[in-house]
Amino acid sequence: MVNLEEPVLKVVDLWKSYGKLEVLKGISFELKKQEVKVIFGPSGSGKSTLLRCINMLDPPQKGEVYLSGINLMDKNVNLNKLRSKIGMVFQHFNLFSHLKAIDNVSLGLRRVKGMSKDLAKQKALEALKRVKLADRANHYPAELSGGQQQRVGIARALAMDPEIILFDEPTSALDPELIGEVLQVMLDIAKTGTTMVVVTHEMGFARAVASEMIYIENGLIVERGIPNHFFESPKSERVKHFLRQIDVLYGKHEDLIKIEKEK
């Protein structure tokens, strides 16, 4: 049904400030279906704010956000309904701590999509299978490792069958040895055609699946291009410097994904 020509998400000249602090100063980009866009940049550059502006959890002051042609800044749209079509995965997972994994995933299906309890559970279990956690369905979040919690978070977003999923630094709160399993799941869903905007410093992941990478600093897009552009010939000195820095601080983690693949 989705017109392949029409972008799934189109962000036009987004401005956001908190008091005098300007966080976003005119960000524009768009994604077609099945595209994966990686956004990166130094901390405090506005990446997370950008994601919260896109699903209007923190509405921007100026600009437009179109989801399959519908303007989310329009006062007449039903934001709750539109948000159900925009999945979100959080840095700190934000799983509902009083609910089992399966109920975390099925809650939206029941309360928002109005599915029956049985159907919602069945769909939720399918989503948990996609993140390889069907065997943990009846565990509470606090009984799961960070990596497992984040995979439940991804399943929760996937289950809603959204048009796009926003990832807000999904691996940066994880212990290093748990990053691989989450990246692997993200890689899998990216390859099966999920449209994604991913804020991350995981350059291995970006290199593997990004259709475009966007470097943001101080609320502005400094440089954008395909992964090869950034890894081989980034233009600005700031990007070069930043890429060197995260290489040292985070490592490439490319091995993590590969190791998982060979298993």
């Binding site: 699903n55 959890l57 709750n80 309904k81 539109l82 948000r83 159900s84 079509k85 925009i86 999945g87 979100m88 959080f90 700190h92 934000n94 799983l95 509902f96 701590s97 809650l107 939206g108 309360r111 928002v112 929760r156 809603m160």
Partner: peptide
């Protein structure tokens, strides 16, 4: 934590 309500809203809940 505030993230709980944000997560609920991100699923489309009021």
């Amino acid at each position: 934590s505030a993230g709980q309500l944000i997560a609920a809203q991100s699923l489309g809940m009021s």
